[in-house]
């Protein structure tokens, strides 16, 4: 019997640089050239000023816990309870993620706690960004 595996995302031509980044353990976000507006998710124009002149930058990987839920529902590949979170990157944008390296215990999960990015392999070629408390042990 095969074990159900976690959802594997698939890149589009426009988001491919992001997924190339995570595969290389880099979190790439975008910035517009004229005004340096930083944004996530990947797009071909700046959602703040509309310019199509946008470039990829590598985020520091530092973030803070913006909000979360502890899911008690069985999702493929996940063992409940597990933490679904929204983190705020040091550069400003927010993203959905999972927390690793910390128990799913409300007493431990303090909003705005410092986190750092890690990467979790999904299948052969894809990795997704997950976050762990700063100073906690990196995933093997």
């Amino acid at each position: 019997m095969s074990t159900p595996t976690k959802f594997v995302p698939q890149a589009t031509p426009e988001t491919q640089p992001y997924w190339d980044g995570t595969a290389a353990r880099e979190l790439r976000i975008q910035q517009c050239v004229p005004e340096q507006h930083t944004f996530f998710y990947p797009r071909t124009s700046c959602p703040t000023c509309g310019t199509e002149e946008v470039k990829w930058v590598t985020a520091s990987g530092r973030a803070r816990l913006h909000t979360y839920v502890i899911s008690h529902r069985p999702a493929p590949g996940f063992t409940p309870p597990y933490v679904i979170a929204v983190v705020e990157l040091e550069e400003g944008p927010r993203m959905m993620t999972n927390l690793v390296g910390i128990d799913p215990d409300p007493d431990l999960l303090e909003l705005d706690m410092d986190l750092v990015v890690d990467f979790e392999a999904r299948g052969e070629d894809i990795s997704v960004p997950v976050f762990r408390p700063t100073g906690s042990k990196e995933a093997a």
Partner: peptide
């Protein structure tokens, strides 16, 4: 898998509204 949600939300074990709509709480 290549929709926006498929790339940036579904990979994190979300199962419809109970695990997403609840996030702002």
């Amino acid at each position: 898998k290549d929709s926006l949600s498929g790339q940036f939300e579904f990979p994190f074990g979300v199962l419809g509204p109970p695990t997403t709509f609840s996030l702002p709480v």
